[in-house]
Write a protein that binds this DNA or RNA. Structure first.
Length: 271
DNA sequence: AATCGCGCCTGACGGC
DNA sequence: TGCCGTCAGGCGCGAT
């Protein structure tokens, strides 16, 4: 999926197309996403104006006049803005048609995404309420990570991918950030020093910011709202590079499985 | 409390 | 060419 930089890229891309637009019609072509698209979405959202597009972790929040649409792109989801009569793909499951005849479409081949509706503040929604600080906010610091890691034996990579600790750090950027600050992804979270956590917090922010600047990473499915890919793939230093030389020292990048997820690291540069 | 690992889906790819 | 196993950017949930 779309990790945080891809979601943020999407947020920025769709904002000018949807803000101040009124939803003329909600079309649900297939409600069977990871969680069923609520039937009341159509009745509750139709006729409302979109006043803002926010993001919390990897959730996109369409702020409508009387509620919020909560969208998660799952593993293979993307949003695009097209003319309402543009050809529909079998993977375009949900569509918001606006008053200017444009449409915001969720395309998601694997259907791991979600489209939900809430009238209350999305921060209080059960799926969002337990989330840790935003990685790009002042809430993520080395001191905070060190504090939360106390006593935990889980691998540091798995630890920073736990959304309750810090949200929005996915599999690609976890590997990249750990390479940047020279930490072995297998190292126990509770046995990682404050000095290392300070470097890690900085590396997470730097990695995510650079990826956002490049428009995200397109491996396969991800596209921006105009259908174009993101370009951070060309800047990946370890992800997907097993067997290839480390960009820093030249030794072979190794792949291992941590918490059932592929992880890539340099055995020389990362300790 | 922390940790483990399954399940939700489809498509792409490599090996035989 | 075709079949089959494996893997994929996420994450919630139940069991231990």
């Amino acid at each position: 999926m779309p990790e945080l930089p891809e979601v943020e890229t999407t947020r920025r891309g769709i904002s000018p197309h949807v803000i101040d637009r009124t939803v003329r019609e909600v079309r649900v072509h297939n409600p069977r996403l990871r969680r069923r698209v609520p039937g009341r979405l159509r009745g509750e959202l139709t006729g409302q104006r979109i006043v803002g597009v926010d993001r919390r972790s990897k959730y996109l929040l369409l702020n409508a006049t009387a509620g919020w649409v909560i969208i998660h792109l799952g593993m293979s989801g993307s949003l695009r803005v097209v003319g309402e009569s543009a050809p529909l793909s079998p993977y375009d499951h949900v569509e918001f048609v606006f008053d200017n005849d444009s449409a915001l479409r969720l395309r998601d081949p694997r259907r791991f995404g979600s489209v939900l509706w809430t009238r209350r503040s999305p921060a209080r929604h059960p799926l969002l309420v337990g989330l840790g600080p935003e990685p790009l906010s002042a809430g993520l610091t080395g001191d905070y990570l060190r504090q939360r890691a106390r006593g935990r034996r889980t691998a540091v990579k798995h630890f920073i991918m736990d959304g309750r600790i810090v949200c929005g750090v996915g599999n690609i950027y976890a590997s990249e950030a750990l390479f940047t600050c020279g930490i072995d992804p297998r190292r126990a979270a509770g046995r990682t020093s404050l000095r290392r956590y300070r470097a890690l917090a900085a590396a997470i922010k730097e990695t995510l910011e650079r990826a956002i600047a490049a428009g995200g990473t397109t491996l396969k499915d991800f596209t921006r709202e105009d259908g174009k890919p993101g370009y951070f793939r060309h800047q990946l230093q370890v992800y997907g590079r097993d067997g290839l030389p480390c960009v820093r020292c030249g030794s072979a990048i190794r792949k291992t499985i941590i918490g059932q997820r592929s992880s890539y690291y340099c055995t020389v540069c990362q300790r």
